[in-house]
Structure formats: C-alpha cells, structure tokens
Simulated assay, not measured.
Amino acid sequence: MDVPFPVAVKILFGTDAIRYPLTGIGRYAYELARRLSTASDVESLFYFSVTGGVNRALPVRPKTGQRERTAVGLRRLASNIRLLTKSYHHVMTILQARSLRRFNDYLFHGPNYYLPVHRGPCVTTFHDLSVFSWPQCHPKFRVRHMQKEIQVALKRAQLILTDSEFTRREIAAYFSWPLDRILVTPLAVSADYYPRPATAIAPVLLRFGLNFASYSLFVGTLDPRKNIDLLLDVYERLPNALRQRIPLIVIGFEGWSSEKTRARLSAGERAGWARYLNFVDEALLPSLYAGARVFLYPSRYEGFGLPVLEAMASGIPVICSNAASLPEVAGRAGALVPPDDVDTLYNVLIQALEDDTWCAKAKTCGLEQASHFSWDKTAATTLNAYKLAFQ
C-alpha cells in the first residue's frame, strides 16, 4: 500500500556516478535523475556532486572522447596513491558537510553506495556486496575504502535500495539488516537497445570488421568474477571451422587481476577465433549487441546483470550463469548454466551457433522478458521508497 508523502518532499540526489565512462551504476543514476526531475510528487530537487556542489540542472550525460579517456587514466593513477586518495576524501567530506547544512529538510539519496553526513533522511543504493564477498576481484585499496564507506552508509541510512532480490537478502544476512528496510528497485535499459536489421548497423559492424549474426558477444569488465576464462575454455573446444566462422568478441575495460585472461584472449586473436575490443563508446554498443548471434555471460557474481537485459532487449539470445541475481534478470528467457560447468555451456553454445529455430525462440522470449523492466518503473518504486524513509 502506498505511503502518503509528507507535505513537502525535497530531494538531494547524488551524481558522483554520472561521469565517463558511464557504467551500469552511472546509467542507473542518470536515468533515475532524469525521471525524478519530472515527477509530480517531488516538490524540490537538487543534484549533489561529490565536490559538494548543489545544482538544480540535471547533469549532462557524459561525452566520449580522448579528453574523457585521459581523465579516467589520471583518476586510476591517482587512486593508487594512498596518501593522495585519503587527503582527497578528507577535503571532499569537509566541502560536502558545508554544502549540506542548508538542506536539513531534504532527503538525500546516494545512488552509488556512499552517503555524506546529513541531518535529514538518507537513502542509499547498494548494487552488490562484491567488496565483501569477492574482494579478490578488486584492488586492495578499493576494498578497504568501499568496505569502510559501506559500513558508514549503513549507519546513516534509513533505507537501502538494491537492484535485485538476491542482493536484498545478501545485505540482510551479511549486516543483520531488517528486510523491510531494504527494497528492490530493478534496473532497466534505455530505448537505444532494440532489434536492428543488418542494413541499419552495417557501418558500425564494418568499423570493427564484424559480420551480422556471425559472432558471440561478451560485454563487461575483465575480472575474475566475470568468469571469462570459462568462455575461453569452451571456445578452445569448439570445432575450428565453427569458431573461425563465429568468433568470440569481448568488450570491456581491463579489470583487476586480468593479465592471464588478457593473454588467453591474445592467443585466441592470433588463432583467429577471438577479438578483444577493450572499452567501446556507449553510442556504439546497441549496434554491437544487435549484430551478435548470441550473448554470453557466465559471471559468478552479479548484483543485477545489466548486459543480460541489454542483450535481450536487442533481440539477442542469452546464455548466462545461474549464479547470484542473473536468474532474476534472465527469467525463463535465458539459457542458464552453472558457472563451472564447461560441458553444459559447450552443448548450449553449439545449439545457439547452429540451430536457427532455437535462436528465434530465444529471441522472442528475451524480448518479452526485457519488456517487464523499465526506468519508469524503477523511478516509481524509488519514489515509494522515499516515502518510507520519512517514516
């Protein structure tokens, strides 16, 4: 049952995740911010930057270019310098506290884990607990920092939002939080992801030397929990003629402890059955999804699994693991396999690469499953959560 809003509902929305590269968390924050700006039951809305800046204007969607790539490289370099990182966060904490003094009657929503000191109600979104459950997949400095900040956010929050029921229950069990103070607000995909004919995406495919419906696709950061090595194990077993005709295409940043995976991909590239495209500009991703024969996502751990939803919305058959939150996203539309089962993945992949009837059915089921998710629904659920936070 809906809870009535207070007479005056005022919201401060954190925008630290809305920057290049626009990751899944960044897209979530941006899409939610857009919809909050037009919500009829929000009286006042300000956007709060990590430096303490407060603005009424919706943050500009990050651009893609060499300048932005350079900035990412500098941020990563700086984050490895512990004293610099510690000093930066100390200064930002002071600036944020000063800015928030005049907003005590506002609810603060931190969509990217973190919550500053704030006297009003606070809501945070925890997308997963990988720094606790999979710390080996992150740099040690990031694990230390995020574990500390998450514990701080838990003390400051009246309510926690999550992307999936899996994460909701994981948080409740790990931190002994009451389930009724943890709400699920599933993610969605933008309208850019939809089935496209070969002629519409030919220029993008030509740019990367790809042929329509003639490659398998993986999109995600190269780190151990994404389980890309399982894909490589399977592809190494495929008949050579088949894997040459339908190679494996991998898109995403090089993540933590990915050297061995990257070396195996390079070997596959030399053999002609794999390509690593690194990070690809977001504007090109919908075409690359739509041009694939099948999408593969054998991840061991996810808080949601947005690439799976993007693939289904693009009309591409999905084969993913049955781990963590992925069954919630894929539903009955995805072919679910255990994350360590090479034989099952091999057999399902052979079917996807050779059976057009199977692919057509998987495409139809995937589009129907993707239709259940929308950013409008995410915003509506979030607004209802804000109401609960005022209680």
Rank of each mutant, 00 (worst) to 15 (best):
Y193T: 14
P195M: 08
P195S: 08
R196E: 10
R196C: 09
R196N: 03
P197S: 15
A198C: 06
A198E: 12
T199M: 12
T199W: 08
T199R: 14
A200Q: 14
I201H: 03
V204R: 06
V204M: 05
V204N: 04
L205G: 07
L205F: 13
L206E: 13
L206N: 12
R207T: 14
N211I: 00
N211K: 07
A213Y: 00
S214Q: 15
S214R: 15
Y215G: 10
Y215R: 13
Y215L: 14
S216I: 08
L217F: 11
L217V: 13
L217C: 13
F218Q: 00
F218T: 03
F218G: 04
F218H: 09
G220I: 11
D223P: 03
D223L: 11
D223G: 04
D223Q: 12
P224F: 05
R225T: 13
R225C: 13
R225D: 10
R225I: 14
K226I: 09
K226R: 13
K226D: 07
N227K: 11
I228D: 08
D229Y: 09
D229V: 15
L230V: 13
L231H: 05
L231P: 10
V234P: 02
V234I: 14
Y235P: 01
Y235R: 07
L238N: 03
N240E: 06
N240W: 00
A241S: 11
L242H: 04
Q244K: 14
R245F: 01
I246E: 01
I246W: 00
I246Q: 01
I246P: 01
P247G: 04
P247L: 05
P247S: 03
L248H: 00
I249G: 02
I249M: 09
I249V: 15
I249N: 01
V250A: 10
V250W: 03
G252R: 04
G252W: 03
F253R: 14
F253T: 11
E254I: 08
G255M: 08
S257K: 15
E259K: 12
E259L: 13
K260N: 14
T261L: 12
T261V: 15
T261I: 12
T261D: 09
R262D: 02
A263S: 15
L265T: 04
L265W: 02
S266I: 12
A267E: 13
A267M: 12
G268C: 08
G268I: 07
G268D: 06
E269R: 03
E269N: 02
E269K: 03
A271N: 02
A271R: 05
A271W: 00
G272R: 01
W273R: 01
W273K: 00
R275A: 06
R275Y: 03
R275W: 03
R275G: 02
R275Q: 07
Y276S: 01
Y276I: 04
Y276A: 04
Y276C: 05
N278K: 14
